[in-house]
Design a protein around this nucleic acid. Sequence first.
DNA 1: CTGAAAGCGCTTACAG
DNA 2: CTGAAAGCGCTTACAG
Lengths: 342, 342
Amino acid sequence: MKSRGRITIQDIVRESGYSKTSVSFAFNSPGRISRKAREKILSVAQHLGYYPDSLARNFSLQRRNCIGFLLPHGLSVSLKNPYITAVLEGIGSVCQEKEYTLTMIPPFGESLSKAVRSASVDGLITLGMEAEMHVAESIRLKHIPYVTIDGNPEGGVPSVNTDDRTAAREIMEHVLNRGHRNIAVISIAGANEGTAVHSSVIDRRMEGYREALADAGLSCPGPTVRVYRSVCSLEGGRTAAQQVLDESWGCTAAAAMSDIIALGCMQQFRASGIRIPHDISTAGFDNIPEASIIAPGLTTVDQSASVKGRSAARMLFHMLETRSPEPSMVVPHKLVMRESVQ
Amino acid sequence: MKSRGRITIQDIVRESGYSKTSVSFAFNSPGRISRKAREKILSVAQHLGYYPDSLARNFSLQRRNCIGFLLPHGLSVSLKNPYITAVLEGIGSVCQEKEYTLTMIPPFGESLSKAVRSASVDGLITLGMEAEMHVAESIRLKHIPYVTIDGNPEGGVPSVNTDDRTAAREIMEHVLNRGHRNIAVISIAGANEGTAVHSSVIDRRMEGYREALADAGLSCPGPTVRVYRSVCSLEGGRTAAQQVLDESWGCTAAAAMSDIIALGCMQQFRASGIRIPHDISTAGFDNIPEASIIAPGLTTVDQSASVKGRSAARMLFHMLETRSPEPSMVVPHKLVMRESVQ
DNA sequence: CTGAAAGCGCTTACAG
DNA sequence: CTGAAAGCGCTTACAG
């Protein structure tokens, strides 16, 4: 009798009289042993409550059947953003098809690198990670394939992106076409300055905004255009909106780089008695489901988060299978005009 | 030179001239070897691109530093439900604190049991799982601690629940107090009949509705009360609402067992020119963030999903540490009256 | 400070 | 059909 601990294959060997080989076959290749052996082994296993340990099994098989998902901010902030959960959903649905498990890797004590190092996954998908970030180095050390969503498409890593610059330009043009000139641009700030050092996505969206504004003869920032930075959450949006209001500079439109921020803005505007779009038009970016649920509907850019997740996962599995790099891709976006911009 | 494959500790031993013990120490207990050895080893490792394999490491250490989360439906349907992502967020935030990784385990080819068996996790949290379900047996076989959210509190498994019966009674009473008598009750159906065989949560909510209705002299189903079943998604809600409308029986209020369903109903009602709450009042259950974002705000029951996730995770970690069972808990709920019920 | 060796629990090519 | 044995890549108690 073993003292305590888990029941292992050895216990079954002892009790059944068969070898480890046979016990293993009983579970994984039942056809390769005699009916008698199989029944004896399975019955002993059943009796002792044995089931092959999957960690040991995976180790022996040298595979993990698991892919990892790295979030840009803490898990909590990230999962409160419907855009991110939609990406997660896309990745997850592919994992489910492939019979892989999906592991979310949160920063360990502020260190994403540490978390990455200790995770056992076959491949990794990152969201909003830049090649220069410290964590990128940790991933490379693991020598596992990875693809990046909303990272830098120029970074040499297979990536899935939206054409952020063009998309941002289009939505800003739409705002300008409606005659707005006093515009608040609401950019994205890292949750804590440590995590998101810098994001090229933000740069590209800002560029797009600037182009459109420049075409209208406006500079950004400029006499009629102010730039704010908001944490990427509902609360962040509320805070930013309050700032816009506090500075009372006659702003008639707000363009936020993320729907979740735009939603927060709308909440705060409304709470202050501001009517949308009558007093202040509001535009977002992402087209999360909430954008169409609320009234007035949020004018935004659709970048089908779920497709991005799905594409990234497919690319990763392809890399896992062929061990060769995949070309980066840009998913289509679409300006979605609803009622929040007038 | 090893042919190809990954670089292992053996390669470092060969190149550095130090033993496996020293190499291991260099990474995990740098203080236990000489500065010289450490530097030599680390430099060789750096040069060869070596980093200890975490699967092997975890195997040797007999731990996985990972907990699993089992969803009631497919990953896709589940992650589209803000209630579920909020639960996930709660669990995730505790994992992050504990420096654990969080693995989502989707059904493998329709088989959750198979997925559970192959996952390597230290513990498991399930959502909406019943003790009689087949997968419960698979979990027991693994001999790992688990706690269940929205499962059966009578199942003998440490669980986190809302007092569903009371909560459902309260919201139905509220609807009745506003004078409604022609009421559509919208229950939850499994995504596909295979997965959710039966859920005691649904039973308890239904009981609560029935109690309130009975107190008002109404039977359910009855002459003025009809029961519908909806898949737990926005689309499910829309379909159900359309049914309600198609049967045109003078319904003036709909009570859905889930906010996501209620939201779908509201969308469909609105699309059909029905005004809420003027023509049809709508009540939900969960209090997802969207409930307060939309206009009119959704009257619902708050059951703080995030707290449920957090509590379950804390219970699980406690079990992992003490190896003893935890008492089940019931989290407080609260009726949240907004404008969708008048 | 350093290393030889046992051990973690499985899988599987190979020989019988 | 069956089993002895090597191997997956690490960690660590123990002895020197």
